[in-house]
Write a protein that binds this DNA or RNA. Structure first.
Lengths: 346, 346
DNA sequence: CTCGGATACGTTAACGCTAACGTAGATTCT
DNA sequence: AGAATCTACGTTAGCGTTAACGTATCCGAG
């Protein structure tokens, strides 16, 4: 409206400095090609006029938005904020920002979000725990310059992939419980649509098979505390003799702990409980939760770094597997060990 | 490069359908002005050609990006994911997406992020717990079409504001502890730069003043678990007779609980501990944490709705105050009450 | 002093989309 | 029948930026 200095755009600065917009663009992008005096005048004017480069125009012109789409199932699950922080730290160092989307465990919504992000011409996407079937996911990812999947694998030309070795991790967890002498083990299996959930089951079954034990009962549920509590209730009502639970994630495990506490079952004496992920919360609940731990922040960094490589057309590695590490805490501890399970403050 | 159908853009569809780009634009934006047959053909072609409207170009043209900037201090604090979910749900219903940024408790970085978001021409920002001084914050917000602050207030024309009544809440917490008979109360005060922290202190001091008690000792710290533990250590080493702690937030309180557990102080017998925020975590730790609870999801929704109004130029209300609610759990319970403090599963 | 090559700029056009305006034909009204 | 209105489109231009290319000036080497 105001015709003088209104839009505070590049051309106004150019006019004020008596140079061409191109010169201003060059100076402001640090690409040189201007005398020190001209550059100084331009910088000063830009500052005075509170000029902010228009990233939208730049994106249109250059076909690079400087934005990375990140899709997570549920930001309220403490697993994902850690991952996001890792992603963000690398992204920010490289001049990218994050467009964050929550799927809330709905495949339909996931597809929708992937489309929307494409619309926004993000320079890449990181999909955490995608729930879509392979074919649909591949198709949805076609339009992207670069994509990285966490806990999911597709053809390497479609997307890079960082996966947690849930098979091995779950087998480790199962063996840990077997070593404790537990034989009536059940599984709180998380969402049916989760690929990671299926992998965990395979790992657990193979561990049981290799010692000649029966395959454990499985109940599926939402991957949160309430889901875990409900699943525990279902399992323990049907099979009161269960003496150990392997849970899809720590939230499910904590839900199970809650149910056990409410029904006066002692953990780990009556029932051992182990989770997955290694969220901080697991150290805070009582009994402290045993878990298959992964470094979520590092995984976030890995995702973003791989995505950056793909954006740059460098396909150095398209597959990274992270092995979870067993952390034994009170919820699966033998009694004599449990005594010394205290936090230490100097 | 490929000249036929390469860029899958609007003009290609227009060519293929034998109409003008404008007609395609109209159809694809559901603005009518085309015969049913033409519209059908266009829709079909758009689908076949896997056309995705270019939100960047649209944003440049219309000066509306469809993106909301959200700045939080620390996404790993469970307070914020809840808020974000509330924001996102309203945003998504209205066709907006979230550009999320983590400040990690640095005012400099905060300023930087606000600038970057401006560059991206977001349609509005929601700043959660801004740490910048008033003047700098006002200035940084000048370039925005719309802004809403959580837990901070500026001139209504600069930004809308949703605040938690920390003064009243903290006074309630203080009175609760006084009613319990505690007289050696100390405060774990959170970050010195937090405006909310100062408000809490005022509330606490006034509550103490009105019963003629001394103003409590205060120690500041980072608003996370480690910060709370460190602050508790500092306080209890200097003043071993402290019998209650009011904490900046639940994370600080949980840190304090950890320290108490490690140093064999019984909560609430030796020390009562109360937090702020009402994060789920507080119900999961033992003893369960008393807290001044606020509905974080609802607050997120409020923020986004207020922002939408401001984007539309409707300044219906520019200030909403949410009153926190005292939730008494085991960490400040009298012993006879504590017995029945159990979760109930049917 | 002349020429090759820096240096310091300017011009043009295009990124994909749509507001604003224009027009031709069909329909309705008086 | 002529005017007024409506429908279904097309044309032009511009959002802010920058790649690509063009040009003028100056400086030192031969």
């Amino acid at each position: 409206m105001n015709s003088k200095v209104s839009k505070t755009k590049l051309a106004d600065i150019a006019r004020a400095a008596g140079v061409s917009p191109m010169t201003v663009s060059r100076v402001l992008n640090g690409r040189g090609g201007a005398s020190p005096e001209t550059a100084a005048k331009i910088e000063q004017l830009a500052d005075e006029m509170r000029y902010r480069p228009n990233a939208v125009a730049r994106a249109l012109k250059s076909d690079r938005s400087g934005i990375i789409g990140v899709v997570v199932p549920d930001i309220a699950n403490p697993f994902f904020p850690d991952v996001i922080r890792g992603v963000e730290s690398v992204a920010m160092q490289n001049g990218y920002n994050l467009l964050l989307c929550n799927v809330v465990e709905s495949a339909e919504r996931e597809l929708n979000l992937v489309r929307i992000l494409e619309t926004h011409r993000v320079d890449g996407v990181i999909l955490c725990s995608a729930r879509l079937p392979d074919a649909a996911l591949s198709k949805a990812l076609q339009g992207y310059k670069a994509a990285v999947l966490l806990n999911r694998t597709l053809a390497p030309e479609t997307a890079g992939s960082i996966t947690i070795d849930y098979r091995a991790g779950a087998a480790d967890a199962a063996r840990h419980l077997l070593n404790l002498g537990r034989r009536k083990v059940a599984v709180i299996g998380g969402p049916t649509t989760s690929v990671g959930a299926a992998e965990r089951l395979e790992g657990i079954r193979s561990a049981f098979l290799s010692v000649g034990a029966d395959s454990p009962v499985v109940v599926h549920c939402m991957p949160d505390i309430a889901g875990g509590a409900a699943a525990a209730a279902e399992l323990l009502k049907a099979h009161p003799d269960i003496d150990a639970l392997i849970c899809y994630n720590d939230l499910n495990a904590i839900g199970a702990l809650q149910y056990c506490e409410a029904t006066f079952r002692s953990v780990p004496k009556d029932i051992a409980v182990i989770g997955f992920d290694g969220i901080t919360l697991g150290e805070l609940v009582r009994p402290q939760l045993s878990t298959m731990h992964v470094d979520k922040y590092a995984i976030g960094e890995l995702c973003m770094r791989m995505l950056l490589d793909r954006i740059d057309g460098k396909f150095i590695q398209h597959r990274i597997v992270v092995r979870p590490e067993l952390i034994v805490r009170t919820s699966t501890m033998l009694e004599q060990q449990a005594i010394s399970g205290q936090v230490d403050f100097a």
